[in-house]
Design a protein around this nucleic acid. Structure first.
Length: 277
DNA sequence: TTCCAGGCAGTGA
DNA sequence: TCACTGCATGGA
């Protein structure tokens, strides 16, 4: 594997947390899959060991995917508003946001609707095994996330058999739309980008915000799921009856331009503490 | 067995 | 606008 000096990175919480469903840890090594790549990562003594497949040594891709060019310390300084977020930052040091492929992120989060993270991961693996291309790495077969072109050839009832239930209609509609339209987010404001996503059947506020943050790099928002809401009600004592747009506005006003990073720390922090309880 | 899950769309008031 | 309901499935 290639080796690069790295610091300020938490592969465990970054890759296996709630922002991506396409990573597995096998014998201490992280393996991830996209629509055209398998990525292998390992961290030892502030060194990142890495490789990409089938195209080898694609550092350009990895640097963008892992967002290694961002000034991490500057982000931490900006979101460090109170003791709660400080606790979260210290409890789960070096969590990062990934910049993931748009289509894979959109389709994955459409499938995440009303499922727990483990179930989403299983559903995506079933789908990949059925319709994705495969690549051999270290003697093991890895299945890639299916391409939109491939998914577009599968009818809705067949998709349903992959364990996605009522989401099969949403997935089919999204795949059809992606096949027929080139969505360009260049120069779009956060609101314009959200409107574009909300126009898709099966995409509401929460899933749109997931795509804005985990793929498109709009960091003034954070997705407010059951955990994001618990953060606000349990940790910041907001009224549980407040609606999504109000809660989103609160996050944005409080944490500012790096809200998504604060949201990610607090999300992982609360999940970790619930597990410990 | 029961409850819940990184929700959304449709319906009726 | 708001509250409520149905929707499939799997994990704990």
């Amino acid at each position: 594997m290639n080796r690069t000096n790295i610091s300020n990175f938490n592969l465990e919480f970054t890759l296996l947390g709630g922002q991506a469903f396409n990573w597995d840890k096998i014998d201490g090594i992280f393996y991830g899959f996209t629509q055209d790549k398998v990525i292998k990562l390992q961290e030892k003594n502030n060194q990142l060991y890495w490789q990409t497949y089938p195209e080898k040594d694609n550092w350009e891709f990895l640097r963008t995917y892992l967002q290694l060019d961002l000034n991490y310390q500057n982000i931490l300084n900006k979101i460090n508003k109170d003791e709660t977020i400080l606790k979260a930052i210290n409890s789960i040091p070096f969590v990062r946001l990934l910049k993931q492929d748009f289509e894979q992120t959109l389709l994955s989060f459409i499938l995440s609707s009303h499922k727990n993270i483990k179930a989403v991961r299983k559903c995506i693996r079933d789908l990949s095994k059925k319709y994705g291309n495969s690549i051999k790495v270290d003697g093991d077969t890895f299945y890639l996330f299916p391409t939109t072109e491939k998914l577009n050839t599968i009818n809705e009832s067949e998709l349903k058999q992959s364990g996605m239930g009522f989401r099969s209609v949403y997935l089919k509609n999204a795949v059809t739309y992606l096949s027929q339209n080139k969505i360009d987010f260049t120069n779009k404001t956060e609101e314009e980008a959200r409107e574009t996503l909300l126009a898709l059947n099966g995409v509401g506020d929460k899933i749109a915000d997931c795509v804005l943050v985990f793929s498109l790099g709009y960091y003034t928002v954070t997705p407010i799921d059951i955990w994001g809401k618990r953060v606000l009600t349990d940790l910041y004592k907001l009224d549980a009856k407040l609606k999504y747009p109000i809660l989103r506005e609160w996050y944005k006003n409080y944490f500012g331009e790096h809200t998504a990073w604060a949201g990610q720390f607090l999300f992982e922090y609360l999940r970790l503490n619930y597990k410990i309880k």
